[in-house]
């Protein structure tokens, strides 16, 4: 029985690891009280969303040791899922009862394509924003890790795959809005609460998701599977000799991290009020890595400390993205 009961020192350590994380979340939640400026609040919400993306990268890179340069792929897929649903909500307003988004009308599309149809349901879109990135990542992970691809080759494959999806989105203008992305979106509305990008509700939604993804990531790293994933990062072949299915664990952590990135992408659409191919561009994907080293670099050395999560958030907040470029959206 002593092996079952958490001994007091273990519990203390858990609390000590959770405490900084919860303190930061408390600060995040308290911020709107101090900050009476909707514009700044929207900015902070945007950085928090990128913080969630960084958390997801910290999970796959810092804990899984998967050198994923294409994290923005999952982010962008989530973002488009949300944007498609919100776009369809605006249809009666913009293009009459015929029910086509404006850019499809401009591109002479006569009927709503089949893959847009289910996005009339918001709950489907939210589920898709999590599941599609996870499935894509799982498929890609299966493809890579079953072949024991490691290190820099993983990064080249993830980067190239992301660029392919980016190119396809830009190329299929009549179905995806092409280079302009999907703009003029309706407001997200869940259970009668409208989430205005510059409102408090959106900020709390984002803050809640930060807390949620931190807790999910934290719980995962404390689980047995999380432990094995860290062991794989530190010494892959040794774990394999122990009889574990290394690829399976890698695929799982890769998919989990993609789902969290998808969540971040959906929130990003809500906060930014549009979706754009730049959301899964090389620039964004690589600049997330700026936020990650403080998190992942620490975990990389084998010491997985909880503070690295919030450090990831903070580092991300301190490093806003490079200024926008001409033709960015």
């Amino acid at each position: 029985m002593p092996s079952n009961a958490p001994n007091s020192s273990g519990l203390q350590r858990l609390i000590a690891q959770l405490a900084p994380l919860l303190i930061v979340c408390a600060v995040v939640f308290a911020l709107p009280v101090l900050l009476n400026n909707d514009f700044l609040l929207n900015k902070v919400a945007r950085y928090l969303v990128l913080g969630i993306l960084t958390i997801s990268l910290g999970l796959s890179w810092g804990f899984g040791g998967i050198l994923n340069l294409g994290q923005a792929m999952s982010f962008g897929l989530g973002s488009y899922a949300m944007a498609m649903a919100l776009k369809l909500k605006t249809v009666p307003v913009h293009t009459g009862a015929s029910g086509l988004p404006d850019f499809m009308v401009w591109n002479n599309v006569a009927h709503l394509p089949w893959f847009w149809e289910p996005f009339r349901s918001l709950s489907f879109a939210i589920a898709a924003g999590l599941i599609v990135p996870a499935l894509v990542a799982a498929a890609l992970g299966w493809f890579m890790f079953r072949g024991r691809v490691t290190g820099v080759y993983v990064s080249i494959i993830t980067l190239a795959t992301m660029v392919v999806i980016n190119l396809v989105i830009i190329d299929q203008q009549s179905y995806t809005g092409g280079f302009n992305g999907i703009t003029d979106l309706a407001q997200l509305e869940i259970f009668g609460v409208a989430f205005d990008a510059y409102g408090r509700a959106t900020y709390y939604l984002v803050a809640g998701c930060v807390l949620l993804s931190l807790l999910v990531a934290f719980a995962f790293t404390k689980s047995k599977a999380g432990l094995i994933v860290q062991a794989i990062r530190d010494h892959e072949s040794r774990v394999r000799y122990f009889g574990y299915d290394v690829a399976l664990y890698q695929i799982f952590v890769f998919a989990l991290s993609a789902a969290i990135a998808g969540l971040a992408g959906m929130l990003y659409t809500v906060v930014m009020e549009f979706a754009s191919p730049t959301f899964l561009g090389v620039q964004l994907s690589l600049s997330v890595w700026f936020g990650a080293p403080s998190a992942a670099g620490k975990a990389w050395s084998g010491r997985s400390s909880a503070p690295c999560w919030w450090r990831a958030c903070r580092a991300r907040c301190r490093n806003p993205r490079p200024s926008s470029k001409p033709g960015r959206w």
Binding site: F143, M144, G147, V149, Y153, I156, I157, A160, T161, V163, V164, L167, V168, D171
Partner: peptide, 15 residues
């Protein structure tokens, strides 16, 4: 399309 297909080919080849 050319770029996308070439990248896909590279991905498969690296695998």
């Amino acid at each position: 399309v050319a770029k996308a297909i070439v990248l896909l080919a590279i991905v498969v080849l690296i695998r």
